[in-house]
Amino acid sequence: MAAVRTSSEVALNRVAIAAVLIATLIFLAPIYWIASTAFKPKELAVSVPPTVLFEPEVTPFVRLFTKRVQMQKTVDPQVYEAAPWWEKRIYDGGERVLKVGKDVQLSQYPDRFMNSLIVAVISTVLAVGMGTFTGYGFSRFKVAGEADLLFFILSTRMLPPVVVAIPMFLMYRAVGLNDSHIGLIILYVAFNLSFSVWLMKGFMDEIPKEYEEAALVDGYTRMQAFFKIVLPEAATGIAATAVFCFITAWNEYAFALIMTNRRAQTAPPFIPSQIGSGLPDWTTIAAGTFLFLLPVAIFTFLLRNHLLRGVTFGAIRK
């Protein structure tokens, strides 16, 4: 029976939808502010009143990727004319791009961004790989003390990073893993592994056992059945788990702050360290933040149907 709708219910519904739209605008405002500041002329980022509409420019991104110095005098017009468009924007701001010979000197940002990418991708592959096997193991086989083991696995995820970081820092220092990609990757695998086991166990539980049984009857070994029947069935689950692990590793701050400072430093501790003293250049910081947040925003849309499952460690599926 369809519910009979009174006019007051219809009105209430409209008010609720209007409220949702307003709330969405409020929630997106800070993100809009980051994105818009990344395309603002420098002086508009700190204008009073705040600037909402403006002519966007990509100069903040040029500043983000280059090393620059303040110029003492104005640029030679001939040099200015010969310069490419992006270099002209830097000259316009009274700065010049540092070069070695003809090569532009890059800022540290691309390095830090690459570090984030390397650490997040490798740690995701390892955590999801191990989690897939272990999730399958817990899903299909009888394990003595299964509930306790799963609790133990989950509890490692709940440890506060700073608590784990103190002994890990000392151990890494002893074996020379401080400020190394491997050191950070190990920490992120350890952090994401429990999550990936729990999530993969949930996905494995949903694949009917009959599929493998049929394969075993057909003469497959258990391993063949796992690789040829179960893994393809679990592909969506593996992808969702991987994206979650990637986002967690990508966003991680505390371990990266404590364990890295130069060579292997990732973007999250690097971006705040750019603030320095005096008046920060918010457009450049916003440009760096924008590029850094972009992958996560895209992944959130790809993951939208798995988010609930992810944030509850696979407990609530829907």
Binding site: A23, F27, P30, I31, N251, Y253, P268, I285, T289, L293
Partner: peptide, 26 residues
């Protein structure tokens, strides 16, 4: 999905940017 965006983002990096949002001068 749009409403879920904030929780997916790096707390350290977004938190930093809130300094600008909260700024007393601009």
């Amino acid at each position: 999905t749009l409403l879920l965006l904030p929780m997916m983002m790096s707390a350290a990096v977004v938190g930093l940017f809130w300094q600008l949002l909260y700024s007393p001068s601009w």
